Computed example of a mutant assay.
Amino acid sequence: MATGPGLEPLVDQMISVITNDGRNIVGILKGFDQATNIILDESHERVFSTKEGVQQIVLGLYIIRGDNISIIGELDENLDADIELSRLRGNPLKPVIH
């Protein structure tokens, strides 16, 4: 895949992606292209709720189109491991409106 500014140092790192439709997907960045389409491995979606803990839906190898990405961030695996997702409550994100 072609390289692009900003994402190259994150290849083979755990990242968190917020999509335009409000989904939070976590996985290992395996590759990307000039349109910022990304490939994640060992990925899962975190579904937030105000009534119960964060649900994690296993996605495995997953591709996200670049035009559906709102934010990409590096995830500190040590800090993330310390969070008890089953006790965490939060409102689901609303879709991004352009």
Rank of each mutant, 00 (worst) to 15 (best):
D82N: 01
L10N: 03
Y62G: 05
L79D: 05
E74I: 13
E45R: 09
I39A: 09
N24P: 00
L93P: 01
Q56Y: 01
I69N: 05
H44C: 14
G53H: 03
D67G: 04
S70P: 00
T50K: 06
N68Y: 05
G60Y: 02
E8D: 14
D82C: 01
T3R: 06
M1P: 07
G22E: 00
I69Q: 06
D82H: 01
F48Q: 01
I71C: 02
R23G: 01
H98D: 11
I28V: 15
T36H: 14
F48T: 02
V11F: 03
I57E: 13
Y62M: 05
F48A: 00
G60I: 08
N37E: 11
N20G: 05
H98P: 14
R23M: 08
S43H: 03
M1S: 10
G66I: 06
E42K: 15
V96A: 10
N24S: 06
I64R: 08
K51F: 07
N24K: 07
E52I: 11
D82S: 04
L93W: 04
D80V: 01
A35I: 00
E77W: 04
H98G: 09
G73S: 12
I72T: 15
G27C: 08
Y62N: 12
I25A: 09
S16K: 06
E8N: 13
I71V: 14
D12M: 10
K51M: 07
L93Y: 06
D21K: 07
K51C: 08
Q56D: 10
T36E: 12
V54P: 08
K94P: 03
E84S: 15
L85M: 08
K94V: 08
H98E: 08
I97N: 15
L10S: 09
G60V: 10
N78A: 12
L88R: 09
E42T: 11
I83Y: 07
N37D: 15
A35Q: 10
L40V: 01
L75W: 02
D76T: 11
V17F: 02
E42D: 14
P9A: 07
R23D: 13
H44W: 10
T3E: 09
R46I: 00
V11G: 05
E74G: 10
D33K: 04
S49G: 06
N20H: 03
E84A: 07
Y62L: 07
S49L: 04
E8H: 10
L79C: 05
S49C: 02
I18E: 04
L29I: 06
T19I: 08
T3D: 03
L59T: 09
P5I: 13
I97F: 13
G31W: 00
R89V: 14
N20P: 00
G90C: 04
N37A: 04
N24W: 04
V26T: 13
N91W: 05
T36N: 15
P95R: 06
L29P: 12
T50Y: 02
G66L: 03
Q56A: 11
I28Y: 06
E74P: 09
D21C: 05
I72C: 11
N91G: 05
N68R: 13
S70L: 12
